[in-house]
Design a protein around this nucleic acid. Structure first.
Lengths: 337, 337
DNA sequence: GTGCAAGGTGGAACCGCTTCCAAGTATACC
DNA sequence: GGTATACTTGGAAGCGGTTCCACCTTGCAC
């Protein structure tokens, strides 16, 4: 079908090794020979076989990314950061979308294979110790994004600080009855705590610092979903003593809260303050006050770390924590007198 | 490092060919031998090298997808459909995100290589004739999603019917002053017409059928972006004789229209009817009337077509057009008396 | 003129798998 | 017992690269 290195060698009247050296920019070729080989390559429209080269070199030039719920804006943005960073490298990015525990398990079990991928990016997915051990013994470099996993380099944000920041902002506005609406603190997909848990801790800490006692009934949680959040928020707003502000663990859930406020004919922010988390694209559109986390950057940084690990296998990598910031928009205001 | 087929053969006391036959479920192995080999494979925790097998078989087991603007909900949903369908196959999905003309060109030039990908999925991206020719001569099977390209199998929706449907819905509600807000009808990324163009034709046709004369100043276009759409809509609403209904070529742009309506203190749908296109996730949240197109399904269907092309290289594939439907929600209403 | 380092070069061996052919071993049938 | 038939089986060759070693030139110092 297509030309091989042998065709080039024959045509150029040189040996296989010489063509290979030209291809790999080895200095051990005379200029004249190099030019001749280059000419033949152009003439034959020859391109070296990626697969053959990889077999010979014992690599795949491919990085796998496993991420839950593709469609979540936060995940997409992280993926976008990863893709953008990889675009400047010779690596391909193959993606796996996880939407069930079965698929999570099968991906985590089958994907980390040294002969298939040179590196693995785990987005918002925390492997269990046994799975970490399997990855290690498979020899696949792994970087985790948006989760902290023992023995694995991680890129995270300071969820606790974010939770504190959000709550503190509300307290500063005079709110005392502040609810927290989140995902379940334990994540069925990961058998471990979610970032909602850390944001919760920040929330608790901010309350405590301000001398506001925590009310159990002001914390509600349910699936990461706008509709679920709406129902939860409706429940909060129907209480005898409803909160004057709601901190949602994600912008998506904050959207559900806004919807519930509308259902109850509450004006935001006059009757109810709402703050989200993530600063996804729509947050600006909704004029939603939120905690911004650098989504794109975590994806990009994760890939950077992975790439340096590939170049330098023995260097160990520590965790990195990217900063969050408060973005004040129009859904939070001083508590109504 | 890891065990090879030779290790297995030696250990099981059989030949290379026999192990290979066991791996490939060839019936030409006695049960006793097969079991022995299987035992050794389990014992050695052997897994055949993907790369080596691919080199030998002359394939890559990889499909590339090139898509513009990852972050657009419609693109993500298509990608999700593609990934989900591929998950049941032995193929990997590698993704390329295109956000500039340069990257578009470089992707379209470098990705279609037979030795790198077994198949190519083009999402909302239309190659030019020269590029199509290059793909053909490279021998890479290609399926196009959301664009119609001569000589290439395509999965599309009936944009013109959708445009007609949206406009007809508004006319039915008594609207006569109906504006159309869209992307530029010509797409800089694709050097060709966009789906906005076909929706535009449907819009024009519906107007004509109803005996409503087309007004040039009721058609505005700009980049596919909420903010741009907002500005465009503001301009429409500031006209001496503003439209009573706006048909936006995408839900994302419809969001900008809603925003502009809010800016102008217009109540939707009482003062202004708004209809979108796509039925992305947020549409339901915004209670947006829209034209639903099967995004996930186009991705899935595109992959299915590609897979059958891979199995059966000589069968030619025709284009497929998936149906759209009107989803009436709360942003359209009879024109105010 | 000889010796030697350094620059160029060819090609066998190898990466790990599949495939195909030759050959061995039963079994069946006459 | 001989031979045709059907299973099994081993392993060389090939997929298309890279690498390493041996070998050949040069050029330069002595």
């Amino acid at each position: 079908m297509s030309a091989t290195i042998r065709d080039v060698a024959r045509r150029a009247g040189v040996g296989l090794g010489t063509v290979s050296r030209v291809l790999n920019n080895s200095p051990l070729v005379s200029d004249a020979t190099r030019q001749r080989v280059l000419d033949v390559i152009a003439e034959l429209d020859y391109a070296p076989s990626h697969v053959a080269r990889n077999l010979s070199l014992g690599r795949t030039q491919t990085i796998a990314a496993i991420a839950p719920f593709f469609t979540r804006p936060s995940v997409v943005e992280r993926l976008r950061g990863a893709e953008a960073t990889l675009a400047g490298s010779p690596y391909d990015l193959v993606v796996f979308n996880v939407e069930s525990v079965e698929r999570r398990n099968s991906c985590l079990q089958t994907v980390p294979r040294r002969d298939r991928y040179d590196g693995l990016l785990l987005i918002s997915l925390a492997p269990q110790p046994a799975e970490v051990a399997a990855m290690r013994s498979a020899g696949v470099p792994v970087v985790v994004i948006d989760k902290t996993v023992p023995d694995l380099p991680c890129v995270t944000i300071d969820d606790q600080a974010g939770g504190h920041m959000a709550t503190y902002h509300l307290i500063n506005l005079g709110h005392r009855r502040i609810a927290y609406l989140s995902d379940p603190l334990r994540d069925p997909l990961n058998f471990e705590f979610t970032s909602s848990q850390d944001r919760y801790l920040g929330y608790r800490k901010a309350l405590a610092n301000a001398g506001i006692s925590f009310r159990d009934d002001y914390h509600v949680s349910g699936p990461h979903d706008r509709y679920e959040a709406r129902v939860l928020a409706q429940r909060l707003l129907a209480m005898d003593e409803p909160p004057t502000a709601i901190f949602a663990a994600s912008d998506t859930q904050a959207m559900g809260v806004l919807e519930a406020a509308r259902d109850c004919r509450l004006r935001v922010p006059h009757d109810l303050s709402v703050i989200g988390f993530d600063d996804i694209d729509v947050a600006a559109y909704l004029n939603l006050t939120t905690i911004r986390q650098p989504l794109f950057e975590t994806g990009a940084r994760g890939v950077e770390m992975l790439l340096t690990m590939l170049e330098n296998p023995d260097r160990t990598h520590s965790n990195e924590r990217l900063p969050v910031s408060l973005v004040v928009r129009g859904t939070t205001a001083p508590v109504a007198g």
